[in-house]
């Protein structure tokens, strides 16, 4: 996990990150969360076109020991899921910022939903 986190990501206190990519927002898990989970062995992702409000469970990630629910850091409609994770969930451990992303969403509510999110440095301080 030596790869740097992308510039400009925002993190939730429930350990998801969001990256504004112009048309869509990319969502993943933070390095801290992945470190806590250990080896990830299974990922359940939502269907494309499904919609979630901020704070809703949209995915489940399982480590060897336990299953964890993943919450939407912002509200939005799923436009793409990272299919590669289905057969290679370990990508999240290996490369959480790039290959380990979970979903891309379209969001009309980003402006208000992102108010409670933290910049990466502040997030790290919060969880440390």
């Amino acid at each position: 996990m030596s790869i740097q986190q992308p510039e400009g990501i925002l993190c939730s206190k429930s350990h998801e990150w969001v990256l504004d990519e112009g048309d869509t927002y990319k969502i993943g898990l933070t390095d801290y969360a992945v470190e806590q989970l250990g080896d990830i062995v299974f990922v359940e992702l939502p269907e494309v076109d499904s919609e979630f409000a901020k704070g809703e469970v949209f995915a489940t990630i399982e480590s060897v020991k336990a299953a964890s629910e993943i919450y939407m850091p912002i509200g939005g409609k799923i436009v793409e899921v990272n299919e590669e994770l289905i057969n290679s969930p370990e990508l999240i451990n290996e490369n959480v910022w790039e290959k380990g992303w979970l979903v891309k969403v379209q969001s009309d509510t980003f402006a208000q939903d992102s108010l409670g999110l933290l910049e990466y440095e502040d997030y790290k301080e919060e969880v440390a």
């Binding site: 250990g38 080896d39 062995v41 480590s63 060897v64 020991k65």
Partner: peptide
């Protein structure tokens, strides 16, 4: 200890 580096390894 539940794990050192990786349960799978």
């Amino acid at each position: 200890p539940v794990q050192y580096k990786s349960i799978l390894d």
